[in-house]
């Protein structure tokens, strides 16, 4: 297992490098000069020039690239062009908000989607199956910000149960959870639609397998056949689906954070982009890509846990 972790980690390093290089290049071809952006359009040429020197923008590209990379490895992401605060601090405060949102939505999606997927597969062709399929089709088709607005309208404006916007007072956990409710429900319902669908498909496939017939031939109950014999065999497709959809989830979290005004990475991304704060933007992009890479790596490792055939290799 440890060997597997190490091997996966080594595999990921070149991808990380290419990702970083892409981000770096993107930021250099972006229009506008960071120094001018920082000082405003009316700053004197000398002031801009000295700031450029201070930021290292006058040095050759490859040395800027190496500096950037070295800074990233040491956790020093530079200072924000708009606020002057260290970017690493901004990210440290925004990242937990986004991760909490993603984790709670994933939990909602799995806790509700797995049972619904099983029930629709076992009751294939019955009313509950049709209802389940209609639900997954809707969930797969609704953009997160549309669902977010709908939920906000229903549960924060028409029937004000939950707060509409904000992240909650810091240090007040129950207030923060209350503010997390609608955003995580938004993403959770969408996640649930994906999980229900893949669970139904793979359950239907697994229930056709010979070993399910063997299990039935032992005279055990149908519930045990489904839960103990079929379900574990559905986990491989479920893990790969979750890996893909956590990435969709991260994408959607940007929109949800904007709608519900949550102080997460998504808001950092948008405000950095609006203010042409390339230093922050570059770091936020790298962090997002890092999350995706980590998720994929975790999924690779989970395959081994849920599938004995991979584990023993």
């Amino acid at each position: 297992m440890l060997e597997l972790i190490i091997r996966r980690t080594l595999n990921v390093i070149p991808i990380c490098l290419v990702v970083f290089t892409i981000v770096f290049c993107l930021m250099r071809i972006a229009p506008g000069d960071p120094a001018t952006a920082m000082l405003g359009d009316y700053a004197s040429a000398e002031a801009v020039q000295s700031l450029r020197q201070e930021m290292g923008l006058d040095r050759p590209l490859w040395s800027q690239y190496l500096d950037s990379l070295r800074g990233l490895l040491h956790g020093d992401l530079g200072r924000s062009l708009s606020s002057g605060a260290p970017v690493s601090d901004q990210i440290a405060s925004a990242l937990p908000e986004t991760l909490a949102l993603a984790a709670s939505s994933l939990a909602i999606g799995l806790l509700l989607g797995v049972p619904l997927g099983i029930v629709t597969a076992v009751r294939r062709g019955r009313p509950v199956d049709h209802a389940g399929r209609l639900f997954s089709l809707s969930g797969l088709s609704i953009p997160s910000f549309v669902l977010g607005i709908l939920l906000m309208l229903l549960f924060a404006i028409d029937v004000p149960i939950f707060p509409a916007i904000g992240g909650g007072r810091s240090g007040d956990l129950s207030d923060q959870l209350l503010h997390l409710a609608l955003p995580s429900l938004t993403l959770g319902l969408i996640m649930m639609a994906y999980v229900t669908r893949v669970m139904r498909t793979s359950m239907l496939n697994v229930l056709q397998e010979d070993y399910i017939r063997t299990a039935r031939s032992k005279g055990i109950g149908e519930l045990r056949v489904v839960l103990r014999h079929a379900l574990p065999n559905c986990l491989v497709p479920l893990v790969s689906l979750c890996a893909i959809n956590v990435i969709v989830l991260i994408s959607s979290s940007v929109m949800v954070e904007i709608i519900f005004s949550r102080p997460g990475l998504g808001r950092l991304l948008i405000s950095a982009m609006r203010q042409r704060d390339y230093v922050s933007l570059q770091s936020v992009l790298v962090v997002y890509a890092g999350i995706v890479i980590l998720v994929n790596m975790t999924a690779d490792l989970l395959y081994g846990v849920v599938n004995p055939r991979i584990r023993s290799r």
Partner: peptide, 28 residues
């Protein structure tokens, strides 16, 4: 699907299938 049949299946009557490669559950 009833209880009475389940009590017989595997105890009073049991079966060996054609495909040994796929008849055992791969995760157990």
């Amino acid at each position: 699907r009833g209880r009475a049949f389940r009590r017989l299946r595997g105890a009073a009557v049991s079966m060996i299938f054609q495909e040994p490669m796929t008849s055992l559950n791969p995760v157990h």
